[in-house]
Design a protein around this nucleic acid. Structure first.
Length: 200
DNA sequence: GCCCAGGTGTTTC
DNA sequence: GAAACACATGGG
C-alpha cells in the first residue's frame, strides 16, 4: 500500500508547519476539525506573533479561544493547548525533549488532559521525529475497507500492527500517515448513516 | 438544513 | 464497560 500510494500521490511533505511548536499547536487544533479551519487559526496566531512558547503560554484562555475560533471547539482547545504548553515549559522547551526516550515522552503526553493517542503520536512523529505511527480515522477506515482489520481494534493494536509491517523510520511513517489521509479525503468517504432503516 | 472533519473527555445506561 | 453526548466552526 505504501509503495502504491507513494508512487501515485508523490511526497506529501507533512506536517504542514514551519516549526515544531507549530506542529504542537496544529495537533491540538485539528482535533475533529478540518485543516482549513486550523490554517486560519494558526494564521491568526502568526499575525499576532504568538507562535513562540514564551508568549503563547502567557495568553489568557478566554483570549486564546477568540483567536483560534475558526478551528472550532475553541474554548476546549484553548484550555487543552495551554495545558500542553505549560507542560512543555516546565519540561524546559522543545530542545530539551531530545534527551528523553520516546516511551517516556509518550506516557507524559498521554497523561495531559486533552492529549489523546493521536495527538501525542502526531507530536512525537512530526515535531520530534520519533518513529511512531499515527493512527487516524482514515487509517482505521481504509484498513477496514480493504479487509486488513475487523474495525473494532483499539488504537494501540493498530499502531503496533502498522509499525511491525513497515521499516521503523520516522520519515516513512510520516509519509504513510499523510498518504492515508490524502487517499481517504477523496476515495474513502464514510458510510452514510441509514437512520431508521429496518435492515440496520 | 444536514453531514462531516487529520479527537478527546465526560456522562449515562 | 460500551455507547451517547459535548465541544463549535466551516465547507460540501
Amino acid at each position: 500500500m505504501y509503495r502504491i500510494l507513494s508512487r501515485h500521490f508523490g511526497p506529501q511533505r507533512w506536517w504542514p508547519a514551519r516549526t515544531p511548536l507549530e506542529v504542537i499547536v496544529g495537533a491540538v487544533l485539528v482535533q475533529n476539525t478540518s485543516w482549513t479551519g486550523v490554517e486560519h487559526a494558526v494564521a491568526n496566531l502568526s499575525r499576532l506573533r504568538l507562535l513562540q512558547l514564551d508568549r503563547l503560554v502567557q495568553v489568557q484562555a478566554s483570549r486564546l479561544a477568540g483567536i483560534i475560533r475558526p478551528a472550532g471547539c475553541s474554548r476546549v482547545k484553548a484550555r487543552r493547548l495551554l495545558t500542553l504548553l505549560h507542560w512543555l515549559k516546565t519540561r524546559g522547551g522543545l530542545d530539551q525533549l531530545r534527551h528523553s526516550p520516546t516511551s517516556e515522552l509518550r506516557a507524559e503526553l498521554l497523561a495531559i488532559n486533552g492529549v489523546g493517542p493521536e495527538t501525542a503520536d502526531s507530536i512525537l512523529l512530526y515535531a520530534l521525529h520519533r518513529p511512531v505511527f499515527v493512527v487516524g480515522a482514515y487509517t482505521r477506515r481504509i484498513l477496514t475497507r480493504y479487509g486488513l482489520m475487523r474495525g473494532d481494534e483499539d488504537y494501540e493494536k493498530v499502531r503496533v500492527a502498522v509499525e511491525k509491517a513497515l521499516p521503523h523510520r520516522s520519515g516513512l511513517y510520516g509519509e504513510f500517515h499523510a498518504l492515508l489521509v490524502r487517499l481517504g479525503k477523496t476515495h474513502c468517504r464514510p458510510v452514510p448513516k441509514c437512520d431508521g432503516c429496518p435492515l440496520e
